[in-house]
């Protein structure tokens, strides 16, 4: 009989992560953090409808978050670090799971006809990777400013308006946010399954939750470029 090591694994998290279900759990938990972030981001964006002063004041508040306990900007960087860690974990786990899934069926079907697979589910991987590229562009565009034609660091309101008045940029944002909406729709429902939140009484609400919040987040994000394009905000 082969001897099996029974000692406790040195690193509990690594042992947990080695399992596909562990990776799924990491995806669900980081997904919750990222969903919380996009929801707050969307709500903050709506400040643009209250005018330049309110919007720029909100942006400055974000930089000053955590003061006076933390020095200026440190709170924001801590927040960014958490988000970047979550994004990195989310993408790494998704990639590892995708590769594992490919290995699970080395010989493909000549014909596989999905019964009820929806568009959001089919495009989950691609919408995810496209979102990663979009995030890099978005940061270079509005945070760093190198991808912006007329960037003024202290005037985010101006940066948003001048960017979206050029329709191809607005179009990129609109398409990216529609992708985000679909990604959220499948992700928000899936995380309940992955984390084992299941009860006959509350199960129908999981779908309602996913539909509601993916629509609210997408509509909120889309409202900004659409409002600028239509001249509602200038």
């Amino acid at each position: 009989m082969e001897m099996v090591a029974t000692s406790r694994p040195a690193n509990w998290f690594l042992a947990f992560y080695r399992s596909a279900l562990g990776k799924k759990t990491v995806m669900a938990l980081t997904g919750i953090v990222l969903f919380g972030f996009v929801f707050m981001h969307m709500a903050g964006n709506l400040k643009i409808f209250m005018g330049a002063e309110a919007f720029n004041h909100y942006a400055e508040f974000l930089r000053a978050a955590g003061e006076p306990i933390l020095p200026h900007g440190v709170g924001l960087w801590m927040f960014r670090l958490v988000l970047l860690t979550c994004v990195a974990l989310h993408i790494t786990a998704a990639t590892q799971l995708t590769l594992q899934n490919r290995r699970a069926r080395p010989i493909a079907y000549k014909c596989l006809d999905p019964v009820q697979l929806g568009y959001a589910e089919r495009t989950m991987r691609w919408s995810g990777y496209l979102m990663g590229i979009y995030i890099i562009y978005h940061l270079l565009h509005f945070t760093v400013g190198t991808a912006h034609r007329d960037f003024i660091a202290v005037n985010p309101y101006h940066n948003v308006i001048s960017a979206f008045q050029f329709w191809p940029v607005a179009a990129v944002y609109i398409v990216a946010n529609l992708l985000l909406g679909m990604h959220l729709y499948h992700g928000l429902w899936s995380l309940f399954q992955t984390l084992g939140c299941n009860h006959p009484r509350y199960n129908p609400w999981r779908r309602v939750f996913a539909v509601t919040f993916s629509i609210v987040v997408t509509a909120g994000f889309l409202s900004v470029p659409i409002a600028v394009l239509s001249g509602l905000v200038s």
Partner: peptide, 11 residues
Amino acid sequence: EGFGSCSNYRE
């Protein structure tokens, strides 16, 4: 056993 992981496709 080498089975894949669940993406909640419900197929």
